[in-house]
């Protein structure tokens, strides 16, 4: 860190920094109005908020909402499911596109690489309201997956109603739907790697696997660290819309997540405050986790993620 050496130097530096402040100004204004002002709504988590009474008149109840949420018999289960599903979503959501990016990078025919890239992005344009029906059919007892299992002599599996399989299906179909996104980021990162290194490796007689291990992966490391850190912030986000479209009471045991739990609680009456309490809790946890990851990256590799 640079220590200010004298007052004069400091003011000189400030002058040089003015363009930075000017650049940030418009974004800061929008951020304050549309992100920081609405955060006042967090007080809902400490109120028994009723729309009829608005913020001003809703009674304050301290930590009652947190106690209420934790006391729910289904809360622990939903919390556990959320963390497990989200964790695997992050792992596969990063590793599968990384693998694909490396494989795509090896494709020499440009048109083929482009076609694959384009099609991998396609499922992302369809909402889960539409994809849900497709996924249910594919994994139904008479669906294609069970037909394939039948060909190999296996017994049909009730995937959508199985607490053994349900999370796997959630994670798998999520990865399939959204892998195009991270794939693009990884491909963009690969373009940053100096092609000269590969040429040198070829001359040295390194095989493909070694090139990937010694050149491609290290070259992509910063972006991998970055995406992982940001993904950690999603550790309590297990994909509300997707779960809502695919689950049923029989798989609440493994598939019910915090968002769907809150959603069902709100169906009869709007439970604003418990939902706000969970949101606040989730935000705090994400902040702490990302903070730790940020600190680790800085401490051990002197790299500021943001």
């Amino acid at each position: 860190m640079s220590k200010p050496k004298s007052r004069k130097k400091k003011s000189g530096q400030f002058k040089r920094e003015i363009p930075f402040y000017l650049m940030l100004l418009p974004a800061l204004v929008i951020l304050i109005i549309y992100s920081y002002l609405p955060m006042a709504g967090i007080i809902m988590a400490f109120q028994n908020f009723r729309p009829v009474l608005s913020f001003a008149n809703s009674p304050f109840v301290g930590l009652d909402n947190f106690r209420f949420v934790i006391s729910l018999p289904t809360f622990q289960r939903a919390f556990r499911n959320t963390a497990i599903i989200a964790f695997w979503r992050i792992v596969t959501g990063l590793s599968v596109p990384l693998l694909l990016a490396i494989l795509l990078n090896e494709v020499r025919k440009k048109w083929f690489a482009r076609m694959v890239q384009t099609t991998i992005f396609l499922p992302f344009f369809l909402s889960w309201a539409v994809l849900g029906g497709v996924v249910r059919e594919v994994f139904s007892l008479g669906g294609p997956v069970n037909q394939v299992i039948g060909i190999f002599g296996g017994d049909p599996i009730m995937f959508m109603g199985s607490n053994t399989w349900f999370r796997t299906i959630l994670v798998g179909t999520h990865t399939w739907q959204s892998m195009g996104i991270n794939l693009i980021i990884f491909l963009a990162a690969i373009t940053n790697i100096d092609t000269g290194q590969y040429e040198a490796a070829d001359i040295d007689g390194c095989n493909k696997l070694k090139q990937v291990w010694h050149i491609t992966l290290p070259g992509m490391l910063p972006i991998i660290i970055l995406l992982s850190t940001l993904a950690i912030g999603q550790l309590l986000n297990a994909g509300f819309e997707q779960v809502l479209m695919l689950y049923s009471p029989i798989v609440y045991e493994t598939g019910d997540i915090l968002d769907t739990l809150i959603y069902r609680m709100g169906l009869g009456q709007q439970l604003f405050s418990p939902a706000a309490a969970i949101g606040l809790f989730r935000g705090l946890l994400s902040l702490v986790l990302v903070g730790i990851a940020y600190w680790c990256a800085y401490r051990f590799s002197d790299y500021r993620i943001f």
């Binding site: 609405p38 809902m44 949101g279 500021r304």
Partner: peptide
């Protein structure tokens, strides 16, 4: 500033205050 921006990734006030604003 980086943290001022990053902070908004984790917290939101929800729909009602946003509607207000």
């Amino acid at each position: 500033f980086a943290w001022i921006f990053a902070f908004t990734m984790f917290f939101g006030g929800g729909l009602i205050p946003m509607f207000f604003v």
